[in-house]
């Protein structure tokens, strides 16, 4: 074989590999996963939720990511929502919060069942990225993956300042819950 031919063969092989991966990179996605959070202090309980979270699961690598637009969180009090965006999360500067990582060890996505997994990756809130291991439960049934996860976010880890005046009303650690069903996307 001449050198040229070799290159052509290799390029062709690489192309095939690429094609293979993109075809076999089966993913589960959803654009309306629900994210809710809860702040509890002896004085006040505050809840908020957004059903505009996007989540992506790639079965081949176990890659898992979700992202929520900060402005989509709804509160009971609209003024609270305004303060959440303007004073705490600064959503004009940092419009989204989310997680990127992978499920390790990966699970069998073709087999129905319940899997308790840990996703290793990074959590970004308020523009601050922290390495995190997030536990989650995945239920695979008829080609859909239902994911539920709950984890804590410490305000101080993400430079979210709580002024002393409202110290007693807002918890230092916020519990976050993610819940949604992802459908297969070829």
């Amino acid at each position: 074989m001449t050198n040229k031919k070799q290159i052509v063969v290799i390029l062709f092989a690489a192309f095939l590999i690429m094609l293979c991966i993109s075809v076999s990179a089966q993913s589960f996605t959803s654009g309306n996963v629900k994210t809710s959070f809860f702040s509890s202090t002896p004085i006040e309980d505050i809840k908020a939720s957004s059903s505009k979270t996007s989540a992506v699961l790639i079965s081949k690598t176990g890659e898992f990511a979700f992202q929520v637009p900060v402005k989509s969180f709804e509160f009971e009090k609209k003024l609270m929502q305004e303060h959440f965006n303007e004073n705490y999360l600064e959503s004009d500067k940092y419009p989204t919060a989310g997680f990127k990582g992978s499920i390790d060890p990966n699970i069998n996505w073709t087999k129905d069942g319940e899997y308790n997994i840990v996703a290793k990756g990074t959590l970004t809130v308020h523009g601050v990225t922290k390495p995190r291991n997030i536990p989650a439960k995945i239920i695979i049934k008829n080609g859909t993956a239902t994911i539920t996860s709950s984890f804590d976010v410490a305000c101080v880890d993400h430079n979210i300042e709580i002024p002393t005046l409202v110290f007693t009303k807002i918890a230092k650690v916020i519990s976050v819950k993610i819940n949604g069903t992802l459908t297969q996307k070829p």
Binding site: I21, I58, P69
Partner: peptide, 23 residues
């Protein structure tokens, strides 16, 4: 070639997410 394919692959997870988040 592998790196390239890996790259494209990684992008797909990201771009998938991006295409879904309609701000």
């Amino acid at each position: 070639a592998l790196l390239l394919s890996g790259n494209i692959y990684a992008q797909s997870a990201d771009s998938l997410l991006k295409s879904m988040t309609d701000t």
